[in-house]
Design a protein around this nucleic acid. Structure first.
Length: 306
DNA sequence: GACCCGTGGAA
DNA sequence: TTTCCAAGGGT
């Protein structure tokens, strides 16, 4: 057996608070300072509503996702409703949240849940992860935030907060097994309390213990934190992907054109969004292959009818 | 693990 | 103005 190097990378550099102490510090803060205006936190939100909110929040700020979620859930309250919608409508309602493949996968999710699960969103993370666009984080979020299961919910916020609690300034770029283990070790035994700790950890990372700055003076767990009082290292925490001039930018321009078009558009109008024909051809071919755009009988371009 | 996939808000 | 990054997932 190879040595478990990954477990070492995310291992705390210092002592971690006990789950009981963490909950004792964190939960009162969350009750007092947590955001109570997120629409999916309202009582009565369905499992499907939670799943939709989590997919929308993948790499999109929750403040931007919230209004889209409201309109979306009013229009398509159940998986069956979304499954039956024209894909063009789905992509337009998704609007400018970015990564429109998420919208496509969400509709596939709706079809699978409606047809293969009797319209009931699974509660088991393993089962949830089988759905398109649902990874480890989103599966855990639905299982915990709606169904009350006891699982670690590890997003970028939790990774960062847990790393800093352990005295590490670098949380790494992606969630590893070691991150999950470290987060699980902080969960109290009671599932309902564990669920609140997970939301509170995420909220702490989103509001106080952010990527750019750690507001240790206002932090409820600063006394138990290995990072307390330190400055966040300057500069990007990881290598960033360029955007200007990339395929993604071209795809974005094509999608924006078709989203805003009332009718199918001629190729000439597609050509107008990008000067380099090579890149444009590539992007258009990709978008068609992925099912994000389509052509009609006369060869004009449009969002997928179905 | 590295890289790909959009868009816009905040500093 | 530019940079950084956001409740990630798939390949």
């Amino acid at each position: 057996m190879e040595p478990m190097r990954a477990a070492e990378t995310a291992a705390p550099a210092g002592p971690m608070p006990t789950p009981e102490l963490l909950a004792e510090r964190l939960l009162p803060w969350f009750d007092a300072r947590g955001r109570d205006d997120l629409p999916w936190r309202r009582p009565g939100t369905t499992a499907w509503g939670v799943l939709v909110s989590e997919v929308m929040s993948q790499q999109t700020q929750v403040a931007r996702a919230a209004p889209v979620w409201e309109a979306w859930m009013a229009r398509w309250p159940t998986p069956a409703d979304l499954a039956a919608a024209p894909t063009a409508d789905v992509l337009r309602e998704w609007g400018r949240m970015g990564y429109p493949r998420r919208a496509l996968r969400l509709q596939e999710c709706a079809r699978i849940v409606a047809e293969e699960h009797g319209g009931v969103v699974p509660s088991d993370p393993v089962e949830l992860e089988r759905l398109p666009g649902i990874g480890v984080y989103t599966a855990a979020a639905v299982a915990v935030f709606h169904y009350g299961g006891r699982h670690a919910v590890v997003d970028t916020n939790v990774r960062r907060v847990v790393a800093r609690l352990g005295g590490r300034s670098d949380a790494g770029t992606a969630t590893t097994r070691a991150d999950l283990t470290a987060a699980e070790a902080l969960l109290p035994a009671d599932a309902a309390t564990a669920a609140r700790v997970s939301v509170a950890l995420m909220e702490l990372g989103a509001l106080l213990c952010t990527a750019r700055k750690a507001e240790c003076g206002d932090c409820p767990v600063s006394d138990e934190c290995g990072f307390s009082g330190q400055e966040v290292p300057a500069g990007p925490s990881r290598k960033r992907q360029r955007y200007q001039g990339t395929n993604r930018q071209v795809r974005g321009k094509v999608m924006a054109l078709l989203r805003d078009a009332e009718e199918p558009v001629e190729r000439a109008r597609i050509d107008a969004v990008w000067p380099q024909a090579r890149m444009l051809d590539e992007a258009v071919a990709q978008l068609i292959a992925e099912g994000l755009i389509a052509t009609d009988e006369s060869g004009r371009f449009e969002l997928p009818t179905r």
